[in-house]
Design a protein around this nucleic acid. Sequence first.
RNA 1: GCGGCCGUAGUUUAGUGGUAAAACUCCACUCUUCCAAAGUGGUCUCGAGGGUUCGAUUCCCUCCGGCCGCACCA
Length: 515
Amino acid sequence: MSTPAASAEPANLMEAVVSLAKRRGFVFPSSEIYGGLNGFFDYGPLGVELKKNIRDCWWNDMVRRRDDVVGIETSIIMHPKIWEASGHVAGFSDPLVDCKVSKNRYRADQLFWSPIVITSPEGVTAIHGYVSALENENTAEELQAAAELFKRKKAIVGTLAPVQPKDFTEATADEVAKIPSPATGNPDLTPPRAFNMMFQTNVGAMTDASSVAYLRPETAQGMFVDFKNVVDTGRVKLPFGIAQTGKSFRNEITPRNFIFRSREFEQMEMEFFIHEDDDWAKWHRYWIDWCTGWLKSIGLPASHLSEYDHLKEKLAFYSKGTTDIMFKFPFGVQELWGIAARGNYDLGQHEKASGVPQAIFDETSKKKFVPHVIEPAVGLDRIFLATLCAGYAEEAVTDEKGNTEQRTVLRFSPRIAPVKVAILPLLKNKETLTDRAKALYKKLQRRYAVFYDEGGAIGRRYRRQDEIGTPWCVTIDFDTIEKPGDTFTLRERDSMAQRRVTEAELFALLEEQVY
RNA sequence: GCGGCCGUAGUUUAGUGGUAAAACUCCACUCUUCCAAAGUGGUCUCGAGGGUUCGAUUCCCUCCGGCCGCACCA
């Protein structure tokens, strides 16, 4: 009997995972026959099952199996004022300027410049050049000093006018071509370019400024703007959460690392509202632990998980604390799940911007207040990638004759595996075997994602299932039909061990492991 | 967005200024009583566009895509 021996991560795990994802139909590049589109991906037959399973697990555990969280689904395009109130419009309208030589990047509104205006002894006033400086308390003085230095170096005679500091957004194309980069002293700067990460579109037939709308860059705002609706209709009491899963869109400058950072992705977010006097730190910790436990429940190993507390100084002013659950990807330890304590900033902003009060009345404290919120937000595509990276293994397998071969296996948790059981008749050309196998297949199919395969040798079929992460194979053999008891061979993926089970035992196993 | 490297079948790779190949995969048939067996047959390929040339997968340019580094990441 064959047994798996030492397993090793391949030299380039990421390459192996991307290759397997393509080969077995988990993830394809989007629009591939047209050359692809950077930052977009399609999910293939197995990928869509895996993704749905992860999403369903999250929904079941987060919403259905809890008494204090309800689910919603909000629209992808929402009122443009939502994104002004949330800070997403302002936060991303900053035009940026690149220095083509030093590769430094500046915010155009923080890069100041002035023409060097000198009046000659003959009374002729002219612009002799330009100076630039980054914004600080002494920007004007720095510009003045630079202008004087310029005049002295070039030995220009005349009277230097006081500098007129302007920021780079006010520079004309002609001036952009002449203003020196603070890094090089030469005119190496690009024109200011706006980097707004939100995708824009227009609502209605008219494409004027009044019709501009955005594809949501996060699903969270849906929970905030529907807060009152849920409170008024949902029979909810603090503390409680509102959850949703759905697509979000960010026009990332550099999508990278396969599906880790893409331009269209799916989020699973929950806003947990608490009393303003409640202990936010306690709830924050509670949700960090809950999320960590959930990740383990779908098969991510504790050894790959860690926590990262954002530095207080770097947090937004309203934030009380943010902790990221990190995952050890092949390309580094990266953020998987962010758990943010956001105070009552979001509801407060929408109250101000919409004019609709968001405060609720609390019966116990007889107080009216805007609730505070803890936000666990995670990217479904990132978890998808994490399960692929963590589950991928190449093992050396030694058979009875002592030959060693490699097998590739995806060690998915039964909860998320795209195929739960493969039904395999031992031989294709024995109708008694295939008939029994097909009957079992039809029966299992009503409740579980199962796969029927009769092509090729049994060993090949086992390995094929290993590679797509199927936890169990059931083989209908001659003992099944010739001996009493109607038992099958149950072959387990990770250990490759086999034992005989009845149909009832098989269903019991699935009932316990697949939830 | 900048710089460097790269783009040949589903995957991993070879190769060429004269119409492209191997292995594995995949499909079909035969055979097969438990771990990628064997035999036979079969499908599929030079990222896109332009230029040079009698002729371009090969040389040049542009675009698209990928990897790495920088920057960015509310």
